[in-house]
């Protein structure tokens, strides 16, 4: 009797010893108990796929094609340039509403703030980590970014500039204009005059 019990305890100890407990960190891939159709030979994004020559499922669009719903028309709204030329548009070509501004603030906070900082002075968190060459959106000395046209800022977001990467793939044109609007608001926060504020609201400003 005692031996049966000992055998039982040993069995349990061996199983637990090999299998461990729920939630243990492990390098072994998840076990699929009934793997019937768990993994299908269909295309999954960003995965290996032998169908294509280079072995990846996510392909670049073939030359001369555009993705569905992508903005391809050569309008000021999509390129930041005056149609038919290379000159940048001076002013944001979409209606600037409070929704657009709110969207701009949100997108700026996600994509721009880590380097350019909450106030746009180029002293975001990355400046403490070794990133020294970040544009100051107020550019106290040269005023280059203050005097730049809206289209030029749009183009910088789209394609990057100097050491700054391109953000055109993560921000669609409407979002880029929203960010431009918010950048303008940040700049105005340092350049604005008391006269710019409606008379009724002036008292609320110290």
């Amino acid at each position: 009797m005692r031996y049966i019990f000992i055998v039982w305890v040993v069995c349990v100890a061996v199983v637990v010893g090999f299998a461990g407990f729920k939630g243990d960190k492990t390098r072994r891939p998840p076990i699929e108990l009934f793997p019937d159709m768990d993994r299908q030979p269909k295309l999954r994004p960003q995965a290996e796929n032998a169908f294509f020559k280079d072995g990846r499922s996510s392909q670049l669009p073939p030359q001369g094609t555009i993705a569905r719903n992508s903005r391809w028309e050569q309008t000021a709204e999509n390129t930041g340039r005056i149609p038919g030329g290379t000159n940048f548009v001076n002013a944001i070509p979409v209606p600037v509403t409070s929704e657009l501004m709110a969207r701009g603030q949100e997108r700026y906070t996600i994509y721009c703030l880590p380097c350019h900082g909450a106030s746009g002075d180029g002293k975001g968190v990355t400046s403490k980590l070794g990133m020294t060459l970040v544009g100051d959106l107020h550019d106290q000395k040269g005023r280059k970014l203050v005097t730049a046209s809206d289209g030029q800022i749009f183009d910088t977001i789209t394609n990057g500039r100097n050491l700054m990467g391109a953000y055109g793939s993560v921000l669609d044109p409407k979002d880029r204009w929203a960010v431009v609007a918010y950048v303008r608001a940040l700049q105005l926060s340092r350049l604005g005059l008391l006269d710019d504020i409606p008379a009724a609201d002036r008292a609320s400003i110290k």
């Binding site: 039982w8 407990f21 729920k22 492990t26 998840p30 108990l33």
Partner: peptide, 23 residues
């Protein structure tokens, strides 16, 4: 009982998936 308990405990995504941490 041991076999039933083992299946109850181990045959669950809480064991088969949770904790997976590949290099």
């Amino acid at each position: 009982g041991g076999a039933v308990g083992g299946i109850w405990y181990y045959f669950s995504p809480k064991y088969t998936r949770v904790g997976y941490s590949p290099i």
